[in-house]
Simulated scan of single mutants.
Amino acid sequence: MAWLAAGEGYEIALVEGRVAARSVTGRAAGRQLKTLPKALKDHPEVDRLRRLAEWLDRHAAACVAQVDGWMVSSLPVPTELLARVWPDEAWQNALRDLAVVGDDPDEVGFLRDATASGELKVVNLDGETVRLSPRTVTLPHPVLLPDLDDVREFAAELGIVQQVEQIHRATWRKPDEVSATATEVRDYAGGVFPTRFSLAARATALGYRVSGGYATCKVRDAGAGSGTEAAVWIGEPYYDDETTTGALSWHDEDGRAVTLAKVGPVAWSEGMRMAAALYAGRKIEEGGDA
């Protein structure tokens, strides 16, 4: 970002998301200062840049959240849309190096560029840079990727770092045999928290929605006609005493319980991921009776 005049003898700019200043006079002319001079702290231009920095942070977070939503929704994303948002640095950071799948479901590549003409440049699993022009692409959830360990190893060789947690996302695979009538999983039930508020706060901090007595997340599996909501019981609202994590269950868009046998692979993995993340914050007993 260009340096802007701010008062006598100083210029300011956003540097790595923070307002920085440099002197334009004296021996330090042109050199960035370690701290913002006291004379600039209440300057209108400084305030304007601070508000811009806050907006950019919110925008970057919104881009990451949207791309994460595309991944867990299993819905196709128009290539033209990716090309339009790619020039925006926040969108580009969220999308770069994500695994994408075009017309061939068996051809996975890491996204490196999207041109204005709607062409995608990806590095395939053979290490070759190829150009794709599918009408839509999907950003596959890692539980759907065949040979996920090999994909992770190859990504490490390329030095790939993803802003959106995809290939290194923790995954859970549904057991081959589950009860035909069961609707709950209790693997992560019983985690003790000092208060219901602390458990709800953890859920919110992890990005999950708290509704009534549940922490929830919405997921859509490929081919599913509607979305599924995973829910973990966290206790009655306004309950101030000690509480524990409850069972994990899934519900359709009408609120009906979904049997475990009908829960899709992405919904299963994301539900278990939520339940495990909540349970990880529980109180740990110490001492001989732990």
Rank of each mutant, 00 (worst) to 15 (best):
A6G: 03
A6E: 02
G7W: 07
G9Y: 05
G9S: 05
G9F: 06
L14N: 01
V15M: 12
G17R: 04
G17V: 09
G17N: 06
A21M: 04
R22K: 14
S23E: 12
T25I: 11
T25M: 10
G26A: 04
K34N: 12
P37N: 03
K38A: 15
A39R: 14
L40S: 08
L40Y: 11
K41G: 00
K41Q: 13
K41A: 14
H43Q: 00
H43M: 05
P44T: 02
P44A: 06
V46G: 04
D47K: 15
D47Q: 15
L49S: 03
L52W: 02
E54T: 13
W55H: 12
W55L: 11
W55Y: 14
W55V: 14
L56W: 10
H59C: 01
A61I: 05
V64R: 11
V64Y: 01
V64C: 02
A65F: 02
Q66P: 00
Q66V: 09
M71P: 10
S73Y: 00
L75F: 04
P76H: 05
P78S: 07
T79C: 09
T79E: 02
L81W: 14
L81Y: 13
R84N: 07
V85E: 05
W86M: 07
W86I: 08
W91P: 00
N93S: 13
N93L: 13
L95C: 12
L95E: 10
D97W: 15
L98N: 13
L98Y: 14
A99Q: 11
A99H: 11
V100L: 06
V100S: 01
G102S: 01
G102T: 03
E107G: 01
E107W: 12
V108N: 01
R112Y: 03
A116Y: 13
S117Q: 14
G118D: 05
G118H: 08
E119Q: 14
L120N: 00
V123C: 14
E128A: 15
R131G: 00
P134K: 10
H141E: 00
P142A: 09
V143Q: 03
V143W: 05
L144Y: 01
P146A: 05
D147S: 07
D149W: 05
D150V: 08
D150I: 00
V151D: 02
